[in-house]
């Protein structure tokens, strides 16, 4: 089959971008969307042009690296599927596919279809964990977790952090991502001691990153490759409200988002003083 890929090309964050159309012949219906891009890139390199930059790694739908909009839908038309597992048979022969990067202020563009999602890491760093250091754990069976609770935690923990929820949300909100982590840890007995603190800290960082607010629309869960339910956002709201009400500690310290790459992240208290 044959398709035309209309791809957003932009050399760097500062520059301006535009769509460029590339016809791709000999597309095999069994190819994945990314393999189709591989084929195009091989042709571009042979012609001496810069290949299309796109993020990918595991190509089995679990690492969360890949993702872009195909004809206005994050990860394309097939539900619960990332672009690396989306085969070309789901498109029509001769179709034009518009490929556009995730667009959000908190996901600054790096090049072509590649965006910077470190805002997600910073949300996790603000409180998306259980504060336990290596070595102090009790026996695994000392903490009983009802099967239903474990299943609920797992449903939320399945998030791959790809960013499709933000990309699809008309508000560019990260509520589904943040809610998934808050739910995963919040329903488990191990996570209860930090439940209030976690929700307050993570919401503060999420807001500091410049994501939009959730207005319960539901586009996020529709495009989510792991079908994380909207329920996790309610759980985040509940933990946040309850935490705001009863927490005694008053310290919330979100950090300023950064977009520089030159030296990576720096320490809050650098021992060398630099």
């Amino acid at each position: 089959m044959r398709v035309t890929l209309k791809i957003w090309r932009q050399a760097s964050r500062g520059g301006s971008g535009k769509f460029v159309s590339y016809p791709v012949d000999n597309v095999n219906p069994d190819m994945s969307m990314l393999e189709c891009l591989d084929v195009l890139n091989e042709q571009l390199i042979e012609r001496g042009e810069e290949p299309v930059a796109f993020e990918h790694d595991c190509r089995e739908g679990i690492c969360g690296s890949c993702g872009f909009m195909i004809n206005g839908v994050a990860h394309g038309p097939l539900p619960a599927t990332t672009v690396c597992q989306l085969t070309m048979r789901h498109f029509k022969d001769g179709e034009t596919l518009t490929l556009e990067p995730w667009r959000a202020r908190a996901f600054p563009l790096i090049k072509d279809l590649v965006v910077d999602r470190r805002s997600f890491d910073r949300i996790i760093a603000s409180g998306g964990y259980i504060s336990t250091s290596t070595g102090g754990a009790c026996d695994g069976n000392d903490i009983l977790v009802p099967k239903e609770t474990a299943d609920r935690a797992m449903d939320a923990a399945a998030c791959i952090g790809c960013g499709a929820c933000v990309a699809a949300c008309p508000n560019a909100s990260a509520a589904l991502f943040t809610g998934a982590k808050i739910t995963h840890l919040g329903v488990l007995p191990q996570g209860k001691p930090e439940q209030d603190r976690r929700a307050i800290a993570m919401v503060a960082q999420m807001n500091a990153e410049g994501f939009g607010g959730c207005t319960n629309i539901g586009e996020c869960t529709g495009v989510c490759p792991k079908e994380i339910p909207l329920e996790v956002i309610a759980a985040m709201n509940r933990d946040y409200l309850r935490g705001s009400w009863r927490a005694r500690d008053n310290v919330v310290t979100p950090i300023r988002p950064f977009t520089e790459w030159s030296t990576g992240s720096k320490l809050k208290n650098d021992p060398t003083g630099g």
Binding site: T132, A137, G140, I143, V145, K147
Partner: peptide
């Protein structure tokens, strides 16, 4: 054996029996 304990403490949602054990 310590790895399992550590991971449970971190909140890894391992599969459970109805009784709550691993």
């Amino acid at each position: 054996v310590h790895i399992i304990d550590q991971c449970v403490a971190q909140g890894v949602p391992f599969a459970r029996e109805y009784g709550g054990t691993l």
